[in-house]
C-alpha cells in the first residue's frame, strides 16, 4: 500500500534561514500524525513545504506516490488563525463554500448543490445556525470549526492543519478532535502541527518530534518519553499535563 506522504532528506529555508534540515519520514494512510517541537523548530515550514507553498532547497516529497502538482485536489489545508483577515466581508456559509472551489475549476460558479453540501459540512461541525454571520463575529473555536467544515467540503483524502487548537475553547477542541478521529476511521490521513504536549498522546497515533531535523518519529506514547522529549526541548522545561492556557485574542 502506498503511503499518504513520503518525505526524504528534505531541506527548507524560510526568510534566509534553513529551518528544516534533513527531514525524512513516511506517513501511512489512515493515520493521524501530530507534528510537535519547540518554537522555531520548523513545524509550519515543513507543512508548507509539503504542500508546495514554499520551495525546498533539496530533498524529495511524494504525496500518494506522486508529485504535489498532481495530488493537490486530494488535499485540504487549514491555515493558522493569524493568517486570516477576520474583518473580511464574508459569511460563515460562504467560507465553507470556498471548499467546493478546487473541484469547480476556473470560472464555473457554485450552484444550489454546492451550497447544500457546504451546509451539510457546516452542520457536521455544529455551526449551521451561524451560517449567515460574518466570520469575525464568531469565537476563536467557532471560527476553527468553520474552517474544518471548509476542509470537509473539499472531500479530501489528506488533511493538513496548522495549529488548529491555539486559543480555542474546550468544546470546540473536543469536537474538532472527534471529527478528525472519525475521518481517520474512514481511512483519511491527517497531519496536525501541534504544540500542547499534554494531550498529544490521546489525540494522535504517531508523533513527529521536530527541532529542525527529526528528533524522533514513532508511536505517540513512545515519542512522549521524557528522555526523548528533552532532546528537542533543550532549553525548555517539559511539563506534561499542565493546565491549558487559553490566550485572549
Amino acid at each position: 500500500m502506498a503511503n499518504a506522504v513520503d518525505v526524504s532528506n528534505l531541506y527548507v529555508s524560510f526568510q534566509g534561514k534553513q529551518v528544516v534540515q534533513d527531514v525524512s519520514f513516511d506517513l501511512q494512510k489512515g493515520r493521524m500524525l501530530g507534528i510537535i517541537g519547540p518554537n522555531g523548530a520548523g513545524k509550519s515550514t515543513l507543512l508548507k513545504a509539503i504542500l508546495g507553498l514554499i520551495p525546498n532547497d533539496s530533498g524529495k516529497i511524494r504525496i500518494l506516490d506522486s508529485s504535489i502538482q498532481s495530488t493537490r485536489k486530494f488535499i485540504a489545508y487549514v491555515p493558522q488563525r493569524n493568517d486570516i483577515d477576520w474583518d473580511f466581508p464574508i459569511t460563515v456559509l460562504d467560507v465553507v463554500l470556498i471548499g467546493t472551489y478546487p473541484s469547480l475549476g476556473l470560472i464555473k460558479k457554485p450552484n444550489k448543490k454546492h451550497r447544500d453540501w457546504a451546509l451539510t459540512c457546516l452542520t457536521k461541525v455544529g455551526m449551521e445556525e451561524y451560517k449567515n454571520r460574518q466570520i469575525g463575529e464568531l469565537s476563536g473555536g467557532q471560527q476553527q470549526r468553520v474552517f474544518l467544515a471548509r476542509a470537509l467540503a473539499q472531500r479530501a483524502d489528506i488533511f493538513f492543519l496548522d495549529e488548529p487548537f491555539v486559543g480555542i475553547d474546550v468544546t470546540s477542541e473536543g469536537m474538532i478532535i472527534q471529527i478528525l478521529k472519525e475521518l481517520c476511521y474512514e481511512g483519511k490521513t491527517i497531519a496536525v502541527v501541534h504544540h500542547d504536549l499534554g494531550k498529544a498522546e490521546s489525540y494522535f497515533d504517531d508523533l513527529l518530534l521536530l527541532n529542525k531535523n527529526v528528533i524522533h518519529y514513532g508511536h505517540a506514547a513512545e515519542v512522549l518519553d521524557p528522555s526523548i522529549l528533552s532532546k528537542a526541548y533543550v532549553h525548555h522545561r517539559v511539563f506534561l499535563n499542565r493546565p491549558k492556557e487559553v490566550p485572549v485574542s
Partner: peptide, 21 residues
C-alpha cells in the same frame, strides 16, 4: 464577473488558494 470566485479566495485566504493550485 468570470473570475469572482478566484478573486474572492485569493483575497480572503491566499494560502489556501495557493495550496489548491
Amino acid at each position: 464577473y468570470l473570475f469572482y470566485k478566484e478573486l474572492l479566495v485569493s483575497t480572503f485566504d491566499p494560502t489556501m488558494a495557493q495550496a489548491y493550485g
